[in-house]
Design a protein around this nucleic acid. Sequence first.
DNA 1: TCATCTTTGTGCACGCGTTCACAAAGACAT
DNA 2: ATGTCTTTGTGAACGCGTGCACAAAGATGA
Lengths: 258, 258
Amino acid sequence: MATGRTHRPATRSRGIPEATVARLPLYLRALTALSERSVPTVSSEELAAAAGVNSAKLRKDFSYLGSYGTRGVGYDVEYLVYQISRELGLTQDWPVVIVGIGNLGAALANYGGFASRGFRVAALIDADPAMAGKPVAGIAVQHTDELEHIIEDNGVSIGVIATPAGAAQQVCDRLVAAGVTSILNFAPTVLTVPDGVDVRKVDLSIELQILAFHEQRKAGDEGAVAPAAAARAAADTPAAPADDRKGPDGDVPAVMPA
Amino acid sequence: MATGRTHRPATRSRGIPEATVARLPLYLRALTALSERSVPTVSSEELAAAAGVNSAKLRKDFSYLGSYGTRGVGYDVEYLVYQISRELGLTQDWPVVIVGIGNLGAALANYGGFASRGFRVAALIDADPAMAGKPVAGIAVQHTDELEHIIEDNGVSIGVIATPAGAAQQVCDRLVAAGVTSILNFAPTVLTVPDGVDVRKVDLSIELQILAFHEQRKAGDEGAVAPAAAARAAADTPAAPADDRKGPDGDVPAVMPA
DNA sequence: TCATCTTTGTGCACGCGTTCACAAAGACAT
DNA sequence: ATGTCTTTGTGAACGCGTGCACAAAGATGA
């Protein structure tokens, strides 16, 4: 099917909106699930529901790819999986290094999402000499001294930073100097990078704070009657030393009291 | 200094743009750092640089809070820390449950970001009976059977899902039924929730795929399709990680509202 | 008191993203 | 072949977020 494609939109690739790019992985996931169930085609309506978005938005997104749906029928699942994978650059193998093998780093190393689609953990790097050689997720941890070496030998262009905040910028600088041009930052810090380097950040505490904002607003709107949460939360609050203390959110937390 | 604050705008709380809310935690972090260094006041320019945003944007953001800067001087650090904390609802203590204590769940439980500002891990929950009673981050893991019990007893309104994708929706349904109205989802699935429940998702594989897209585009721009080879060519600026000073702009926050 | 200087707060314009609504395109049945 | 029915692709309008640029506000000094 879809053999006689005269030519692809090609030049269109340039202008894919950022918001659309951010949704492509979502579509890809839904499509992959359909593919595994051997569903041949899917309508924008169905796929949109599966991806949790608006169908008009989905169609517009696909239109940027030079979408190839069939009116009256829908989209060919396999074909779309291929197109999106290609567009996202997942048809090639991306070696990735993870720096900072603490709890989070180890969790990331073990995360299946890495290996599943186009990504390969090329190395795990940690500053602690005691970690060197220790296997995590089947890969021996290497010392930070090897960083530049590893990046170059493996042609790594994507790095994941899971170090404490205090070390993040320094690690970032070294990664960039060694040739990394895309960074996924889990450390709660603002990273400064030269032009041409992409940084995306994942920050748990920020996400929680945003939720807290909305949660508070809900409680206020409802006159504090909705969930039996607000009332309880206020009354309760055991011990906890003068929480006036805002720890340096950067350093590895010494497990909380309680 | 800046003591005679007469009254606050109060009613303004309603109309804070979502984009602004998402940046408040960023400002708060920068301000907290300043506070620890006992810096009394800060200008929008300085604070913006520390938070990695545009100064005009920052001023506009603060204006939604009914900002209280002093022209010709800047903002009072302590006062602003308090205002933002209050706006985000961090002056109260939010009990949080983490469901799914695998690698990621354990990492989250150990993460200092939780305890540092207004959040308290009320319980760790896992479906594996073998995990029950086992201490993680100083807290004994409880079995899923206790979920509803825990939520109610502790007045929990925020839940974190770190289970495998397959279990996420079911866990989500139970959390919501028990009274949770805000969910932070780490499972790679689209969660369906009733109106009034907020869901924010953190998805590693999506973040990586977005990076891969840009990485591929960089490589393509350079002419060849050599993944890391071309990348290195672009980043051949040797050393000098000193100060390339460039706003980390051009990239959007990691997660957007579902 | 007045002039000058710094920095905030915001009106305005612009661009991006979302959504609606519908014409065009194709499948399918007769 | 022709008509009907389904679903795509997109033009257009709208709303939100961003950044510029400047007037207003207050500090500071003479």
